[in-house]
């Protein structure tokens, strides 16, 4: 009787174990077919990045941390500013406050996040492709054509959007992970994931709203709370950026 009851747990943990091993097989970059960017040919607006940093409690809850978030924002912004010249095209940073139609811009930022999450779930993870995405591997995603109506992005060809969310595993979470692993010695082990590091960077065509390039990963590297870490994170976020000098390798 008892064995049957715990079958539920075994199934759950098998699922968790498989789910995490599949992550490594996941794709991380998408490019709209035929999209190319000649260096020095376009103007790109970089929207103020959305940055959230906190820790992950033992039970897995996100605990927002104001200081870490401030620090990470500063680090990432500084690194982005430093990187701009290497990206091959003119890039202008747009702050989300104090611009006309900032409400709409904020909404587009969130919409981009939702679209990018869908890309991760339904395109980058081949086992989970939607029926319409199974046959053709074309990268066809969009935030809709109305982006061009926003005053602030007029005169730009593309918008670059960046979002990151980091939850650093607390000591309790790490201990739980070890205990879950050691549990297998006595009874059943439990797969516990510690920490969560989501990063997404995408380029959206202002005229059509199409997502022409996306780099997104649920397991990004680089500790954004530190200057060197932020450098690594920005490097990963902008890896293969269209038209940049390092996009070939």
């Amino acid at each position: 009787m008892f064995k049957i009851r715990s079958l539920w747990f075994i199934l759950l943990f098998c699922y968790l174990a498989f789910a995490s091993s599949d992550l490594s097989a996941q794709e991380k970059t998408g490019n709209k077919e035929g999209f190319e960017l000649e260096p020095g040919s376009v103007r790109i607006a970089l929207l103020e990045p959305s940055v959230r940093v906190g820790s992950q409690s033992t039970g897995g809850m996100f605990e927002p941390n104001a200081d870490w978030t401030e620090q990470a924002k500063e680090n990432l912004e500084a690194e982005l500013a430093r990187k701009q010249e290497l990206l091959g095209n003119e890039i202008v940073r747009l702050s989300l406050d104090n611009v006309h139609q900032s409400r709409e811009l904020v909404q587009y930022h969130a919409l981009f996040g939702a679209v990018a999450s869908s890309v991760i779930e339904y395109q980058f993870f081949p086992g989970n492709r939607l029926p319409t995405k199974k046959k053709s591997k074309a990268f066809e995603w969009s935030v809709g054509p109305d982006l061009a109506d926003i005053e602030a992005v007029k005169g730009f060809d593309y918008v670059l959007l960046i979002r990151t969310k980091d939850a650093y595993g607390s000591t309790g979470r790490k201990l739980l992970q070890v205990a879950g692993f050691l549990g297998a010695v006595a009874g059943f082990g439990t797969a516990v994931q510690s920490g969560e590091h989501i990063g997404m960077a995408g380029l959206v065509d202002v005229k059509t709203g199409d997502l022409v390039w996306l780099n997104a990963d649920l397991a990004m590297g680089g500790d954004v709370r530190k200057v060197e870490g932020a450098e690594k994170r920005v490097q990963q976020l902008l890896e293969g950026f269209p038209g940049s000098s390092d996009s070939e390798d």
Binding site: S57, T58, G59, G60, A179, G180, G183, G187, G189, T190
Partner: peptide, 20 residues
């Protein structure tokens, strides 16, 4: 937070001890 911490430990330790 404290309740979900406890919940997480309950699951992990319960599994290790094979207790429902």
């Amino acid at each position: 937070r404290s309740t979900s911490d406890l919940l997480a430990w309950t699951v992990v330790l319960g599994n290790a001890a094979v207790v429902d």
